[in-house]
């Protein structure tokens, strides 16, 4: 008996893949093409994004922020990181989502749905021509995380004044001389709550014996800092950021702090 349960790829093709022919589905009386069109089926990452979006309740922040999802949270839902990366790139190209760089770590990114972002920006500063122009040109056409001065001036025809206005409104953050990160205006309060919640959760696990705790025990604990964003949101975050290791045990899922 093998003690370790390792998944060996099915090299000898023991399992045959079930192939459903298109003809079988037609007796339901609907149009074949509409049911089986692959374009309608969302991919794994999109479903994961929708799930995380449902976890966050923006009413708590009095609608001051759009729904922000971290890229590493998706890693803890869909296990293959490369597939997640590729599908996120596809969604970015299709302009369904926008990615922003948050935090000091080099590869910490957060994802916001493009519609939510536009709605949020319009709500913050309604009737502002520069901002509307920015939303229509840059947000719609450019999938990048950062912008340089030459792109802004040449491609999108922004003047220096307009750029200054955008920075003061919080839509652009200074990165370097002549380059800016795209940013979410008013995201400060979200980051503050998020960081506090994460620290509180990690502190709780660190205090436990052997620095590990069963997930259901953790969910039962009432932590004030975690209440705003929700326990599930934070748990997805610490697993995805590899601060904590998820181990399946006979008593359920165990979270052990990584050194």
């Amino acid at each position: 008996m093998k003690r370790s349960k390792r998944i060996v790829p099915d090299v000898f093709k023991k399992k045959r893949k079930v192939v459903v022919s298109a003809g079988l589905q037609s007796d339901w009386g609907c149009d074949q093409d509409s049911i089986l069109s692959n374009l309608a089926l969302p991919n794994d990452t999109k479903v994961a994004l929708d799930y995380v979006k449902s976890l966050l309740h923006v009413e708590v922040f009095e609608f001051r922020i759009p729904t922000i999802i971290f890229k590493h949270q998706i890693y803890s839902i869909v296990h293959n990181k490369t597939t997640v990366d590729r599908q996120l790139e596809e969604l970015k190209e299709k302009k369904v989502i926008k990615m922003f760089k948050l935090g000091i770590a080099v590869d910490e990114f957060c994802i916001v749905f493009t519609d939510d972002y536009k709605q949020h920006v319009k709500r913050q500063e309604p009737d502002n021509k520069t901002i509307d122009k920015f939303l229509d040109t840059v947000v719609d056409r450019c999938p990048d995380v950062s912008l340089t001065k030459s792109t802004m001036i040449n491609e999108f025809c922004f003047t220096d004044e307009e750029i200054t206005h955008l920075v003061s409104a919080g839509l652009l953050t200074v990165r370097d001389v002549g380059s800016w990160w795209l940013a979410i205006p008013g995201a400060g309060i979200f980051m503050k709550t998020f960081v506090k919640g994460r620290q509180s959760l990690l502190r709780t696990i660190r205090k436990c014996k052997y620095q590990e705790i069963l997930q259901k025990n953790l969910e039962e604990k009432k932590l004030a800092a975690v209440k705003k964003l929700g326990m599930n949101f934070h748990i997805l975050d610490i697993i995805g950021a590899e601060l904590v290791k998820k181990i399946q045990t006979t008593s359920g899922c165990l979270l052990r702090l990584n050194e």
Binding site: K101, V106, D107, V145, S146, R175, S179
Partner: peptide, 9 residues
Amino acid sequence: EKGKGSTEA
């Protein structure tokens, strides 16, 4: 793509 990392990277 210059966007992803910091300028030193």
